[in-house]
Write a protein that binds this DNA or RNA. Structure first.
Length: 259
DNA sequence: ATGGCTCATCAAATGAGA
């Protein structure tokens, strides 16, 4: 079972890239973030063999789950703040062929820049709400995989040069502590669990300064597995191919294989 | 280099991203 996650930075601008990626990798599931539109092209993905669920928003945010497997139930709200209108969360239960069920959660965690503003406060609050939900999921009989753009650089090894990021919301102690707290609870960072020492493995590169060519990036797109799912973790890789194409998203896909 | 680029909206700048 192959599950991918990709911040496409506008689904309209990246439709061909998404098509090429699905053809090349044939994932069973694809999580997408930053759709940047209210209209999700579900019919186009249906033609490629994928059911889909999405929550969109004009101009900003927007997340979707594509699946070759049947999609059972869907939630589009993260608990804890009824006033939150951002389209950053979608949760689905998928039916695996052997009768098992799998909870798949796609998130676009707030960026939080600049620090010292409401945006940073919102990011921390959003993470606290997610952690609260993760506590409940952890003990649920249905195992859970959370994927998406976390907008957190977990450790120094996850960026080219820590000094460049010390004033950035993605690298602040507060979000990083929260990301560590998730792992302390028993959730597993799929990539780091399988590649504990690997440096220079990034999922995002600036459009500026030939950042991709120089591999000056950050690892901010992650998969977290609930403890029950850990034994099924087979591989986790970052596919840099889409980032190297013409007019790419600034993010590239990350892929997990579950036994 | 507190953005040099790329999106969206909407028809020229501006906000957002990270």
């Amino acid at each position: 079972m192959l599950i991918a996650s990709w911040n496409v930075n506008s689904i309209r601008a990246r439709m061909m890239h998404a098509h090429d990626f699905l053809q090349a990798q044939q994932p069973d599931v694809l999580l997408m973030q930053e759709l940047k539109t209210l209209e999700f092209p579900a019919m186009d993905f249906k033609a490629l063999g994928y059911e889909s669920v999405a929550i969109g928003q004009k101009s900003y945010n927007g997340v979707a789950i594509l699946s070759k497997l049947p999609i059972e139930t869907v939630t589009t709200k993260l608990d804890g703040d009824d006033e939150d209108t951002h389209a950053r969360f979608i949760e689905a239960i998928l039916d695996e062929p052997d009768g098992k069920r799998l909870r798949v959660v796609c998130i676009y965690l707030p960026n939080g820049n600049p620090i010292g503003t409401e945006k940073f406060i919102y990011k921390l609050g959003w993470m606290d709400r997610l952690i609260h939900q993760m506590m409940r999921w952890k003990d649920d009989p249905i195992p859970t995989i959370i994927g998406g753009d976390f907008n957190v650089i977990p450790e120094d090894i996850d960026c080219d040069k820590p000094a460049n990021w010390v004033r950035d919301a993605l690298f602040q102690p507060e979000p990083r502590e929260r990301y560590r707290a998730m792992q302390t609870m028993g959730w597993v960072d799929a990539f780091r669990a399988l590649h504990p020492e690997e440096a220079g493995a990034y999922t995002y590169w600036d459009y500026f300064r030939q950042a991709f060519e120089r591999n000056r990036g950050i690892r901010i797109d992650h998969f977290l597995l609930s403890p029950a799912l850990r034994p099924r973790l087979e591989s986790c890789v970052i596919d840099k191919t889409p980032r190297g194409q013409e007019k790419p998203s600034d993010h590239t896909p990350i892929l997990v294989t579950l036994k």
